[in-house]
Design a protein around this nucleic acid. Structure first.
Length: 496
RNA sequence: GGUAACGUGGCCGAGUGGCUAGGCAGAGCUCUGCAAAAGCUCGUACAGCGGUUCGAAUCCGCUCGUUACCUCCA
């Protein structure tokens, strides 16, 4: 596969040319949601980011297997919940079965993702469905002498592992520094070192999410599922592992250690890719901070800080207008700007679909031809540089100016060749719909009705019945549609 | 405290040594029955102070400020 795609690899802290282990196949694993609450804007970022990555890899000709898990068991807490499972806690409070909670929020997550036009992963494994694989992995690590059992629980032996491998290589941590800053926490007396983390945790008598194992009735440690499931579906070594920056330590660090300790393959994934966080008033949007806005609230506008509802495509565009490794600050102004930008891009797509190359009128001007060819080529260049969607969108706007001029007649279509025209049209469509994953939010039937109304408008206009003309215009404006009277005809556009 | 980042014009946000990023907002013009849309034009930038260089938003140092991870979190 000959292409110039490079990605920033957290492991090496550099951009590296992307080469799959077994071209044309690409294995991509992304840490999925913990399903105990509705997804918020912060969750949308990794899933949109890696959705675009997956779409772009596909565009380049790779055959991608995209695996994104559902975490539905076992996230231990060491704080006020005293080791209770989050899902279990919520279930008790609501008098629900834990799996009922899991199902509810899994469904809600899927709905949100669908609205955001995030394609479903090829495999979406659940942690609860892979207990056996996780137990197997623990046994392997035990056999290699890098874990130990204590009172029915099993812990990963970080200091032992660190003798031959470097625990902390991904996040740049040094074990001595970590030890020097460890706090005394409750329930850790079973551990030999405070850095050790649970592979299997014995369930207390009241803990209802539990599975049998060689060591106790209990549940797997929270880093283990990703290691076990990525190996099962992508192999011991695969191409790309993605997730949020906040998962880098300890989650991904532990994944690397577990994989190395169980099957002796360095790093599990060759590329470790991390998206940055979404902030609100400069602070990370997160569950624990209580400063999050759910995606559902965005779509309906039902949150006090939202000045209006923001559609799924507005949210998607907002996220894509920043590079995935930069923090992105939420603001109403930013969302409103994104909304206008999105509509502008979609209006361009509509225009492009209508444009027809004038038959037999070819009068190619070398300068115009070069200009369009260059603007078209520029569309994809930024994506090869670590998936810079922000820059690609900027390039899109530059081309869009020309497209709009073609539509209004300022740029004569015949000054470029039919081939250049078709290439431009195809490139614009491909970038917008296939790669960036932006789609029309208006239904097709509504558009058909609109054409009918425009017929009446045209008629009133020809009769100089301006009262009717203005009335139709006002009515449509109320629906977010504006009418454009141009020399070349009547058209409509989404009100930006 | 340790580790990792960041600080760009009214707002958002690209940019890893020289070539207009882009969007939103604002001003003007063209077009128009009036509009709208679109196009064209315009303005205030690179936290501060030093340094390297023919040349720095971009490299180095210091100062100030902000954030993230180290504890569940995308």
């Amino acid at each position: 596969m000959n292409h110039p795609l490079s990605l920033y690899n957290t492991l090496t802290r550099t951009k590296e040319k992307f080469e799959p282990l077994q071209s044309p196949f690409v294995g991509l694993y992304v840490c999925g949601p913990t399903v105990y609450g509705d997804a918020h804007l912060g969750h949308a970022r990794p899933y949109i980011t890696f959705d675009v990555m997956r779409r772009y890899l596909h565009h380049l000709g790779y055959r991608v297997r995209y695996v994104r898990n559902i975490t539905d068991v076992g996230h231990l807490q060491n704080d006020a919940d005293h080791g209770e499972d989050k899902i279990q806690k919520l279930a008790k409070a609501a008098q629900l079965e834990p799996m009922e909670v899991v199902e509810k929020y899994t469904n809600s997550f899927h709905r949100d993702m669908e609205r955001l036009n995030v394609l479903p992963p090829d495999i979406e494994p659940r942690a609860s469905g892979h207990i056996i694989e996780q137990i197997e992995m623990i046994q392997e690590i035990l056999a290699n002498g890098l874990a130990y059992e204590a009172n029915g629980s099993v812990y990963f032996d970080v200091p032992a592992y660190n003798k031959d491998h470097r625990y902390g290589k991904l996040s740049g941590r040094v074990i001595e520094d970590l030890l020097a800053n460890t706090r005394e926490l409750e329930g850790q007396e079973e551990k030999r070192s405070p850095l050790d983390f649970a592979l299997w945790k014995k369930a207390s008598a009241t803990h209802i999410m539990r599975w049998p194992s060689p060591w106790s009735d209990g549940f797997p440690g929270w880093h283990l599922e990703c290691s076990a499931m990525s190996r099962k579906y992508l192999g011991q070594q695969f191409d790309i592992h993605g997730g949020g920056l906040d998962l880098m330590f300890p989650h991904h660090e532990c994944e690397i250690a577990q994989s190395q300790a169980s099957h002796n393959h360095s790093d599990a994934a060759r590329f470790w890719v991390h998206n940055n966080l979404i902030t609100i008033n400069g602070k990370k949007m997160g569950k624990s901070l209580g400063n999050f806005i759910t995606l559902g609230e965005f779509f309906t506008g039902s949150h006090e800080v939202l000045q209006q509802a923001y559609s799924p495509m507005t949210v998607r565009f907002f996220i894509l207008q920043a590079h995935y490794r930069s923090t992105l600050d939420f603001s109403n102004e930013g969302l409103q700007a994104a909304r206008k930008g999105y509509l502008k891009v979609m209006n361009g797509l509509k225009i492009l679909n209508q444009l027809q190359y004038p038959a037999g009128a070819e009068a190619v001007d070398a300068k115009a031809e070069d200009e369009i060819r260059k603007l078209t080529a520029d569309l994809f260049v930024p994506l090869n540089d670590d998936l810079n969607t922000a820059k690609a969108i900027a390039a899109l706007f530059n081309l869009l100016k020309k497209v709009n001029s073609m539509h209004t007649g300022g740029f004569k279509l015949e000054t470029i060749s039919p081939e250049t025209f078709e290439q431009m049209r195809a490139a614009y469509r491909t970038l917008v719909t296939d790669i960036l994953g932006l789609k029309e939010e208006q239904t097709a039937s509504a558009q058909t009705l609109l054409e009918v109304v425009l017929g009446f408008y045209k008629e009133a206009k020809e009769n100089k019945d301006y009262a009717k003309v203005d009335a139709i215009r006002a009515q449509l404006k109320g629906q977010g549609i504006v009418i454009k009277d141009m020399k070349t005809g009547i058209d409509w556009a989404y009100e930006e």
